[in-house]
Amino acid sequence: MPEAKTPWSLTLSEVGLRLEDLRERRDLTQGDVAGHEVLRRRGVKIDKSGLSRLERGQRRRVARDLIEALLEVYQASDSESSEILALLGADTTPAGRPRPALWRRNAHLLGPMQFEGFLKMERRAAALSNYERDIWPGLCQVEEYAYTVIAQMRPDLRPSEVKALVDVRMDRQQQVREGALAEFRALVDEHALHITGGDLSVARRQLERVLEESEDPRNTIRILPDAVGLHPGSAGPFVLMAFPEAARQVVWVETMVSSLYFDGEDDVQRYTAAFTNLWERALDPDETRTRLKKRIKELEQ
Results as ranks from 00 to 15, higher is better:
E215H: 09
F115E: 07
R209P: 00
S259Q: 13
I135C: 06
M113T: 08
F275P: 00
V228E: 09
A4F: 04
L110N: 11
L181R: 08
A69T: 07
S258E: 12
Q152L: 14
R105Y: 03
S81W: 06
P285R: 14
D167H: 05
I46C: 04
I150P: 01
V210W: 04
A125K: 07
S129M: 10
L283H: 12
G43R: 00
Y147F: 09
S82W: 05
P112T: 02
G50M: 05
R105L: 14
V44C: 10
H36K: 12
L139V: 05
Y74L: 00
S13F: 00
W252Y: 15
A227L: 08
P225E: 01
V268A: 03
T272S: 15
G35M: 05
G89W: 05
Q175N: 10
I46N: 04
G229M: 04
E83Q: 11
T93K: 13
F275Y: 15
T196I: 02
R281E: 10
V142D: 14
G89T: 08
T272D: 13
N130C: 06
S259L: 02
G198N: 11
A235T: 08
E122F: 09
V202I: 15
P217K: 13
T196C: 01
R97V: 12
P2Y: 07
L19H: 09
H231M: 02
D21W: 02
L207N: 05
Q30K: 13
D266G: 08
R18Y: 11
D267I: 02
M1I: 08
F243R: 06
K163I: 02
R218W: 12
L88A: 14
N277R: 13
A235F: 03
T6L: 05
G179T: 09
V251C: 05
G236M: 10
L139G: 12
L292Y: 07
S259C: 15
R123C: 12
D134G: 12
I296M: 12
E55S: 11
E20I: 00
V253Q: 09
G89E: 13
E55K: 07
R177S: 13
V33P: 04
V188Y: 14
E178W: 08
E190T: 03
P237S: 12
I84G: 10
E72Q: 12
R97F: 04
E298V: 14
V168A: 09
L110T: 09
M113L: 14
E300K: 13
W103I: 08
F238R: 00
E280D: 15
E300C: 01
E300P: 00
R133L: 15
M256N: 05
K293E: 15
W103L: 09
S160G: 04
V228F: 10
R169Y: 10
V176N: 09
Q249G: 04
T6P: 06
I135E: 11
I135L: 14
V166R: 06
Y74P: 01
L260G: 05
Q173R: 11
D284P: 00
Q301T: 03
S49D: 12
E215V: 00
R40P: 02
D78Y: 06
L128W: 01
M170G: 06
R270K: 10
K48S: 08
V166D: 02
R23I: 03
E144F: 00
L292P: 02
D167N: 06
D134W: 09
R60F: 09
Y147K: 03
A151K: 14
K120L: 01
D32K: 01
A69Q: 04
Y74C: 07
N277S: 12
D267F: 00
W103H: 15
E254K: 05
R97N: 12
